[in-house]
């Protein structure tokens, strides 16, 4: 993994002292960590630890009551989701959020919407520069389709696809945005071993080839240990540990809190590594 050490750059995103509550329920309290350029950052923790809330804070679905977010050197308190998207943050969802009535191709094309800059009236006339633009975007989308190996389902309405493929299309739509920061919320949940391996390969490849920075939530410890450069551990909305996969794995707090003190779990952790 040494080649990765070279690639990792400056801090891309930093969250400081983030607190978020819904009514009386504290989802996150005083969480701080950072994500560096080109790295794969995992966020782990038991159910209800606040992992998805954290992603939702980063891309603007939730607005934290306290804390600061610094993205690309700009400090912000909160942001609307579509603004986050404009600034290069793309994401996938835990419960797939695709446009079910549209085909795979159209779904991925929607990821290009922000990049279509031609005047609406040129587009309406489908004339001159607008035609060229549409073709360019189509080309970019075809590349993504090739990359994710989903050529066969190009025209299929995504509502008809099996779960694993839907996850892949959702990743494709996020990639179409050519994001700088990609947030993946349990990209491998509900997949079989083969599908998981494919997904891992895609994540590593796109990090390698395009240098995309990735923050992902995942429950499969084997996957987390294989993929990530650094790991954040959350528990009950608080930061429990932050470090490389090895550091986190050997952290006694993490072993106790995240895996429970049962020794059975402990073994599975070793096995996964």
């Amino acid at each position: 993994m040494s080649y990765k050490e070279r690639k990792i750059g400056d801090t891309l995103l930093k969250v400081e002292d983030i607190s978020l509550s819904f009514g009386g329920v504290k989802a996150l309290s005083h969480v701080s960590f950072d994500i560096k350029e080109h790295e794969i950052r995992a966020i782990i923790g038991p159910n209800g630890a606040g992992k998805s809330s954290m992603l939702n804070v980063i891309n603007g679905f939730y607005h934290p009551q306290e804390g600061l977010i610094t993205y690309k050197g700009q400090v912000r308190r909160q942001m609307r989701p579509h603004q986050a998207a404009k600034q290069g943050i793309a994401r996938t969802f835990q419960n797939i959020a695709l446009f079910k009535g549209m085909s795979t191709l159209d779904n991925i094309m929607t990821g290009r919407l922000l990049r279509m800059r031609r005047n609406v009236f040129w587009q309406a006339l489908y004339f001159g520069p607008a035609v060229k633009e549409e073709l360019e975007h189509r080309e970019a989308v075809e590349k993504i389709i090739d990359f994710l190996e989903i050529q066969a389902i190009r025209k299929t309405p995504v509502g008809r696809l099996p779960y694993g493929l839907q996850k892949r299309v959702e990743l494709g739509r996020a990639l179409a945005m050519e994001p700088e920061l990609l947030l993946l919320d349990e990209p491998m949940a509900g997949m079989n071993v083969e599908e998981k391996e494919d997904m891992c390969r895609f994540i590593l490849d796109l990090n390698d080839e395009f240098g995309t920075t990735i923050a992902l939530i995942e429950h499969d410890m084997g996957v987390v240990m294989d993929l990530s450069d650094r790991v954040v551990v959350l528990d009950y909305g608080q930061l429990l540990a932050d470090g490389t996969a090895d550091e986190v794995r050997n952290n006694q707090d993490v072993i106790d809190a995240y895996l429970g003190v049962s020794h059975g779990d402990d073994e599975s952790l070793e096995g996964a590594a």
């Binding site: 679905f61 989701p81 579509h82 998207a85 969802f93 446009f99 079910k100 990821g111 922000l114 739509r173």
Partner: peptide
């Protein structure tokens, strides 16, 4: 189709 997904792609 989906409000949340639409927001996430910048609409």
């Amino acid at each position: 189709d989906d409000h949340q997904a639409a927001l996430s792609i910048g609409i």
